[in-house]
């Protein structure tokens, strides 16, 4: 099952933080949810959509290292404007939703997306 970022924006009632509309057609099939960047690096697969409550610069670096397809900040979190700018330069779509991490995962799972995890 695949969904575009645009479809995810609708079902999670997300606000788009980055302005590049072209990135919203990107297909997503795998997600990984964590506030621990160490765990994203250890357990996450490459090219997933990350769901997190961490908004610092390290999320961007981890996204670069892991070739993440996008980031959804949960619980209404929003990174600084300079982080949004950097993400735009790197063509990394950033979204925010007021939903909790639990609900966000549940809704995406219900819509057919699965976890991108390596054991």
């Amino acid at each position: 099952m695949k969904m575009t970022i645009e479809e995810i924006v609708k079902i999670l009632d997300c606000t788009k933080l980055t302005r590049d509309e072209d990135l919203l057609v990107r297909d997503i099939s795998l997600c990984f949810a964590s506030d621990l960047m160490s765990d994203v690096l250890r357990f996450g697969k490459a090219e997933t959509l990350l769901l997190t409550g961490i908004t610092n610069n390290q999320v961007l670096q981890v996204a670069e290292i892991m070739d993440l397809k996008g980031i959804i900040f949960v619980r209404g979190k929003k990174p600084d404007e300079n982080i949004i700018k950097k993400a735009e330069e790197r063509k990394l779509p950033l979204l925010t939703t007021n939903k909790s991490l639990f609900d966000t995962c549940g809704i995406l799972y219900q819509n057919g997306l699965r976890e991108g995890v390596k054991i």
Binding site: D39, V40, I54, Q58
Partner: peptide, 15 residues
Amino acid sequence: EMGFGAGMGLPNIKM
């Protein structure tokens, strides 16, 4: 708080 220090770093490098 920055999302690090889970004690996974060196084992992850080795892996």
